[in-house]
Nucleic acid binder design. Structure first.
Length: 289
DNA sequence: AATATTTGACCGCC
DNA sequence: GGCGGTCAAATATT
């Protein structure tokens, strides 16, 4: 009955966690920038402390464990007819049984709930791993909209999705709409205190966002693996979501499609350790479809 | 072979 | 019927 049992609390917590992480990244940037920023570093530490306090208070009031998150989120999004989008029977059950058109599994369109919020950002950064599942041209908009779902949708039933669209007014910015909260519990709340900004160490592993990201800057959770980096990194950025929307030097492109990786901090040795930096670009966990 | 992305088709809502 | 969100076969990548 208290407010912490509802979805808003979950969203609130997610946003706090996000704020915490961004602050952490900011702190890292500050500390890497070096001298003369002690005050800023102090301030970032204080902000982090506040985030920690609020988050832990929230958790103590109502343990929002991943299981309770599942409960909270379920019911707001029943994706398909009766099986609730669980695809519990062998992953292949979702595939068409043959060249039968006109019978795609019936599904209910999600309604946007209060678990939907939009951010504008110049980075496509967050702590979750996403998998793109669609892209659409949107009427009267210049840029297409890309649709992402949580990588753990099938393995853990996480129903979080997000939509990303470039802003017309400022094509360097993205409008990112998050729909639903994550119910997956892997990497959900990485120990943000030691999160470092994603600094790609190899050119071929560059990511996205424009020149300034080559300097330690805001981290990103997405990675483009583009082998023909003739263009600016801004183009990488564009290619991340709209590989076909490149203007200009597009003729040189071989249309290698982007891949998206979750960017995780390696506190424990995981399988990808050849990364010279402290980040490991973890491929999306295996999963059956 | 396993997994991810692309992209046209399909579906529900307005 | 149009539009936007999702599905899933085909294709690309690792």
């Amino acid at each position: 009955m208290d407010i912490f049992s509802n979805n808003k609390a979950i969203k609130l917590k997610d946003q706090l966690v996000q704020g915490h992480e961004w602050t952490t990244k900011l702190q890292q940037i500050i500390s890497q920038t070096g001298s003369g920023l002690g005050l800023a570093e102090d301030l970032a530490a204080k902000i982090l402390g506040s985030f920690n306090d609020v988050i832990s208070s929230l958790e103590s009031l109502e343990p929002i464990s991943s299981s309770s998150l599942v409960t909270a989120v379920e019911g707001s999004q029943n994706a398909s007819c009766d099986n609730d989008g669980k695809f519990e029977d062998s992953g292949d059950s979702r595939k068409r049984l043959g060249p039968v058109k006109g019978k795609r599994g019936c599904y209910k369109r999600k309604k946007k709930s209060d678990q939907t919020w939009t951010e504008e950002s110049n980075v496509l950064e967050d702590t979750f791993s996403w998998r793109k599942y669609g892209q659409k041209e949107i009427l009267n908009t210049k840029f297409p909209r890309s649709y992402f779902r949580c990588t753990h949708k099938y393995s853990q039933g996480c129903k979080a999705t997000k939509q990303v669209q470039k802003l017309e007014l400022d094509p360097r910015m993205f409008s990112i709409t998050y729909i639903g909260n994550h119910t997956c519990n892997t990497n959900e709340i990485t120990p943000a205190k030691i999160i470092k900004p994603c600094v790609p160490s190899h050119q071929d592993e560059i990511i996205m966002d424009s020149e300034e990201l080559k300097s330690p800057s805001l981290a990103t959770s997405m990675k483009v693996e583009e082998e023909n980096h003739h263009g600016s990194s801004t183009e990488c950025d564009l290619q991340l979501v709209w590989p076909d929307m490149l203007v200009g030097e597009e003729d040189n492109q071989h249309h290698h499609y982007e891949e998206i990786y979750g960017c995780y901090e390696t506190s424990a040795p995981i399988d990808v350790l050849d990364s010279p930096d402290l980040w490991s670009w973890q491929r999306y966990p295996f999963q059956q479809q």
